[in-house]
Amino acid sequence: MFQLLQPAVCRTLSSGIRSFSSTAAKRVLQGGNATSSKLKPLLWTTALAATGLLAWQSSSTIQLDAEPVQAEETIDPASGIAFPNTLKVQSKQPLPTFELVGVGVRTVSFLGIKVYSVGLYADLNGPKLNISKSATPEEKIEHIIRNSVCVLRIAVRVRLVPTRSTSFSHLRDGFMRALQARLVLAKQRNSITADEELAVQSPLRKFKSMFPGTPLPKGQALDILLAPPEFSQQRSLIVRDLGSVQSDWLAHEFFLAYFEGDGLSPPLKKSVAEKLKDFGN
């Protein structure tokens, strides 16, 4: 079992950690199979744990070592990748058990290349979730993202056919295209001011810089966590093993990009909408 960060270590790390090298990801993302029947614990680096801790609450210790609860699994029919139905992130500051809301495959190009499977996890019992059962799927999804702790799990498997080599830089480029598209859409809708657009440029640059050029091994999972909403500070988007960035706009829009229109993965949106059909008060 992983040891929690001691306060003295956190103070030392906080003064020196501002970026994450590709070697950290390569050391952690070796071996393992995220799709086996007994999923191995996800190794969150101490650097990420310290960053997540400082981004959430300076007075609390957060250990971003995630252990999936050994429970039933849901299989993405397009890829055969298994997602645990519940996911637990261990921490001294109690976090909820995440429930799998839906899964789907991300497909790009006219050849129909399947890049990865993605699963959305959320705390569907959160106290801030108060929405009518008659709300549209899009309204329910946005309400959950803005008011609940969420995780996106991205997984690649050898048996994806047709398939392509996936690296962190490929994922980064896709993420940045999606975020830039969200920015253009926000300007068209007049939902972001010029000052807000300028303010989000720095978080966007930091987010882009976190991803190394190394491959994402097939059979491995990458978790991206949307930290709990805090009244006094911006929300954190934490990428396992790579780092975190604080920005309400970036954190929300990263998740919402998967569900705008058909979404980045239409099967994911369809799966989530079906799960939420009877959700609400």
Rank of each mutant, 00 (worst) to 15 (best):
F98E: 03
V101T: 11
V101N: 07
G104R: 13
G104F: 10
R106M: 02
R106E: 01
S109C: 05
L111D: 08
K114Y: 05
V118L: 12
G119H: 06
L120H: 04
A122C: 10
L124N: 03
G126N: 11
P127T: 00
K128F: 08
K128A: 13
L129C: 06
N130H: 07
I131Q: 05
S132Y: 04
S134K: 11
A135K: 09
T136E: 04
E138N: 10
E139K: 07
E142W: 06
H143G: 08
I145Y: 07
V149K: 06
V149T: 12
L152T: 02
L152Y: 11
L152H: 04
R153L: 07
R153E: 11
A155K: 14
V156M: 07
R157A: 13
V158M: 11
R159E: 06
R159G: 05
L160W: 00
L160I: 02
L160P: 00
P162G: 02
T163E: 01
T163K: 02
S167M: 04
F168H: 11
S169G: 06
H170T: 14
R172N: 12
D173E: 10
D173F: 05
G174S: 11
G174E: 06
M176S: 13
R177I: 04
R182K: 14
L185Q: 14
D195Y: 15
D195G: 15
E196H: 08
E197G: 14
S202G: 08
S202W: 10
F207E: 00
F207K: 00
S209T: 08
G213R: 14
G213A: 09
G213E: 13
P215K: 02
L216E: 00
P217A: 00
G219L: 02
Q220K: 13
A221T: 10
A221H: 12
I224R: 02
I224K: 01
I224V: 14
I224F: 10
L225E: 06
